[in-house]
């Protein structure tokens, strides 16, 4: 099969993930978009592994490592989200502006 099909799917998935990270307000939905981007990278690794016919199968092994890191990321990320929720009663990332330097802009849809 053509390598560019897998790479194109990966690029489109990554674009969808970028949109999700920037557009979502709910921290949980934001984490889901991050997972989409990690999976796009995984697809690239697996596709190049099959293309190179790598005898070490480095691409697939690295895909497994990415899965491990993603699991760790989701665990810590959800713990942070839960801690923030207990403290602030909200998981909307644009309301957590304590570290921001400027005044919050007026939301367009409220």
């Amino acid at each position: 099969m053509h390598l560019s099909m897998a790479l194109l799917l990966s690029a489109l998935l990554f674009g969808v993930g970028v949109y999700g990270v920037l557009a979502r307000r709910n921290a949980i939905a934001l984490l889901m978009a991050v997972e989409l981007m990690l999976n796009a990278a995984n697809l690239d690794l697996v596709a190049f592994d099959a293309w190179f016919k790598d005898t070490m199968h480095a691409g697939q092994v690295f895909a497994l490592f990415v899965v491990v890191v993603a699991a760790a990321e989701v665990g810590v990320g959800l713990a942070i989200v839960l801690a923030v929720f207990r403290l602030r009663e909200t998981v909307a990332v644009d309301e957590l502006r304590q570290l921001a330097d400027v005044d919050p802009p007026v939301r367009a849809d409220t």
């Binding site: 390598l3 560019s4 790479l7 194109l8 990966s10 690029a11 489109l12 990554f14 674009g15 969808v16 993930g17 970028v18 949109y19 999700g20 990270v21 920037l22 557009a23 979502r24 307000r25 709910n26 939905a29 909307a92 990332v93 644009d94 802009p105 939301r107 367009a108 849809d109």
Partner: peptide, 29 residues
């Protein structure tokens, strides 16, 4: 309330990322 107010900007950024990456990999491979 699930989406923030910057959806148009996010759509542009996502489309641009997908477009650049897609044309790059298709042209290269």
């Amino acid at each position: 309330q699930l989406d923030s107010g910057n959806r148009p900007v996010a759509a542009v950024a996502g489309l641009a990322t997908a477009g650049v990456l897609g044309t790059l990999v298709v042209a290269a491979f």
